[in-house]
Design a protein around this nucleic acid. Sequence first.
DNA 1: TTTGCATTTAATAGATCTATTAAACTAAGC
DNA 2: GCTTAGTTTAATAGATCTATTAAATGCAAA
Lengths: 208, 208
Amino acid sequence: MIANPDSNTEQAILEAAEKLFLEKGFALTSTTEIARVAGCNQALVHYYFRTKDNLFNSVFEKKVRLFATGLLQVHQPGISFEQKLKQMIEAHFDMLRANPGLPFLVFNELLTNPERLKKLKGNMLDLPKLVFFPLKAELEAEIAKGNIRQMTIYDLIISVVSLNVMLFIASPILKILAELSDGEILKLVENRKQENVIIILKSIKPTI
Amino acid sequence: MIANPDSNTEQAILEAAEKLFLEKGFALTSTTEIARVAGCNQALVHYYFRTKDNLFNSVFEKKVRLFATGLLQVHQPGISFEQKLKQMIEAHFDMLRANPGLPFLVFNELLTNPERLKKLKGNMLDLPKLVFFPLKAELEAEIAKGNIRQMTIYDLIISVVSLNVMLFIASPILKILAELSDGEILKLVENRKQENVIIILKSIKPTI
DNA sequence: TTTGCATTTAATAGATCTATTAAACTAAGC
DNA sequence: GCTTAGTTTAATAGATCTATTAAATGCAAA
């Protein structure tokens, strides 16, 4: 029998692992539980991926890239820098809304597992340039024209990412503590999308 | 022999636990390792705190309160709302800088352990009011006077906390990925303190 | 039908972790 | 000096987790 390149079982294991790793992180997820969710024997997890670490890396790097490239989008030509920035913030926000568990997974694993972070550095050397370069020149041109106050591209990215990401890290906690319904959380999140755009656009203005 | 109310050993265990929990979270810290750092036998950890969970709660609630009350500061009377806001942002920022591992611990444990979050809700009912109430009335007065655009106190708090907290969650990662020296990180952090103040103060202004 | 190979299962080795227990140690008070 | 109570230690029970192994199963081709 020829091996199915995308075996049903292998795919089920990957999906179960992704779900559980996103929910609880690496340390709190056991291969036994992955197998249970995937509907197979625990040894099968090791048959396909040999180690839990391999399995984790299979889902992790894809997720990190998703996380980082959320900022990088193709824009309509001819629109203003501010409009472009607004589109980027919204695209990043929408990516996070579609993957709300992503920031937690990425931060949790990179902070608790230093080797993972060092390994990542090698694989992701292209990303900063992909994300920063298209924006950097434009930002500096706008500053030179006096349309935007003095600031670096790093400051801008950090601010956007902070505002967008923290919302999705904190909202499960906010939901419980403030006793919000699902509907109320949805409304709050949608409102923060506009709020984050407003904050960034106002904050880059010159004068004072 | 009379029990020392603040036994040397008990205190050493608490401090070791605090250090390790802050570094690696609950799941990745073992009582054996806590004992090693505290310089005592592993069974002593259980002698003093019975369970690992008890020990964790002993350090955790104190830390959550520290995290939440960072925003709550006594201000000089008679200064403007904007100056007061600036002081709050800076005080919150300074608290985080003095406890950089705090946000990770709080988010990590509250997100991976739902029972911890529910339990916390009971113990922290006073906090939202302590933090929000002093500001809420003033904010609404400023909005009525037309000094500040229409926004809620929750939006303001979320923005401040997002900008301040995310910096300290992300900076260990940023340090590795961008290959920054300790000095460069210090400089970046200090710069972000002013940047966050500027962002918030600009973002609350009326007029588009 | 039989052979061969990928897949799946049950069983388990080996490591580690929490928590308990029983015994040893230490020093104050009678 | 002996008793007593708090403190500390070594040993280990019991649970859980990763990873391996050997055997069983299913299916396609010969």
